[in-house]
């Protein structure tokens, strides 16, 4: 995105304001429960095409009515989403990804590469960014759009070198006293031969350890899929925020279903049992805040989603930067020490 030598303004998206990639297969993807609204909207668009001439007032009234109906329908559907439907939204192929947010939130962005040990992992993106007056380090998992891009990004499933890149840059942020902001969006750490050989477990463990004692503020934002240890590895933080339709889970619903019910198609049931939505996790005190998404989900309006995240980042930074380092770390520790439900009989 940016040249390696200069800080540049993130490239503006050429496409429409709601979605950065209308021309890919993924851009036409629609979930079952989105269909009724999408169909209504298609009808409205058609009628709009007809209603350009003069004397079409009755048609315009009709369009208004349909629009209201579509909005109402969407609200109704989204008000009673099941956990499994939220899983599908979190994985929506049209959902905004890390770099979609970077280009909308940051004034400048300088991506930095490599773990200085083995390779550059494209599943994890990291770089220096400025957001208004703030200089911050951004780290996040990056999904790809379309097959080719997804292969390049390894479906946002990081290898050890991804976590080692993150650790390297977090340590650098600490050195220059800059806050760290992470964007979580991964099905999990990659379970492959090379990943094991190069110490996937050690890389994650090290990242958890370094984040636990990092002397600068850390803000984690789950923007899509929070897949188990691979997600946790960059989300030990002073504040954890989740997008309204993102998920965060110890195991994928499919994985859980194939173990507990011996049948991966029971994933919807497993999703219910795992309590993996933002709402669930706020309730049991795992996360600090839920970021509301635009009507119909983040993919319906990238700009509005980015604006909501930006506002949260700025207010969170203001809060955390005011806390002296020692107190910051003590509060972070206290938060994690208190997580758990046990009785001492």
């Amino acid at each position: 995105m940016a040249s390696p030598l200069t800080q540049t303004k993130p490239a503006a998206s050429k496409s429409s304001k709601t979605n950065g990639s209308r021309n890919t297969f993924a851009s036409t993807f629609v979930l079952d429960f989105e269909k009724p609204v999408i169909e209504l909207e298609r009808k409205i668009a058609e009628m709009r095409g007809l209603a350009t001439g003069p004397g079409m007032d009755t048609l315009k009234v009709e369009i208004d009515k349909l629009e209201k109906k579509a909005n109402k329908l969407r609200k109704e559907i989204f008000a009673k989403l099941t956990r499994w439907q939220k899983v599908q939204l979190a994985r929506h192929p049209r959902r905004p990804y890390m770099l979609d947010y970077v280009e909308r939130i940051c004034d400048t962005w300088l991506e930095l590469h490599g773990d200085r040990c083995y390779a550059d992992d494209h599943a994890i993106v990291a770089g220096f960014a400025s957001i208004e007056e703030e200089q911050v380090l951004l780290i996040g998992q990056q999904k790809g759009r379309g097959t080719k891009d997804n292969l390049f990004r390894n479906f946002a499933m990081a290898h050890p070198e991804g976590y080692r890149k993150a650790i390297r840059l977090m340590t650098l942020a600490q050195k220059f006293n800059r806050p760290v902001i992470t964007f979580i969006d991964t099905p999990g750490a990659y379970p492959g031969l090379g990943a094991e050989e190069r110490g996937q477990a050690e890389a994650i463990a090290r990242s958890l350890y370094e984040m636990a004692r990092l002397t600068v503020p850390i803000i984690a934002i789950v923007i899509g899929e929070g897949g188990s240890g691979g997600a946790l590895a960059i989300s030990v933080a002073d504040e954890i925020h989740m997008m309204e339709y993102s998920i965060y889970s110890v195991i994928s619903p499919e994985g859980c279903a194939s173990i507990l019910y011996r049948d991966a198609t029971e994933a919807p049931q497993a999703a219910e049992a795992l309590k993996l939505t933002a709402e669930d996790l706020k309730e049991i005190g795992i996360i600090d805040n839920i970021i509301s998404e635009p009507s119909g989900g983040a993919h319906e309006n990238f700009d509005a989603s980015a604006a909501a995240i930006k506002a949260v980042i700025l207010s969170s930074l203001k809060r955390l930067k005011a806390i002296p380092t020692e107190k910051l770390i003590a509060a972070r520790h206290k938060k994690y020490e208190e997580i758990g439900f046990w009785l001492d009989r």
Partner: peptide, 21 residues
């Protein structure tokens, strides 16, 4: 991690890490 405790169990990884620092 013990999946019957969902995210509470995943967070024990972070908790143990915090304590070990």
């Amino acid at each position: 991690m013990r999946m019957q405790e969902g995210m509470v169990s995943l967070m024990q990884m972070a908790k143990a890490s915090v304590k070990l620092t």
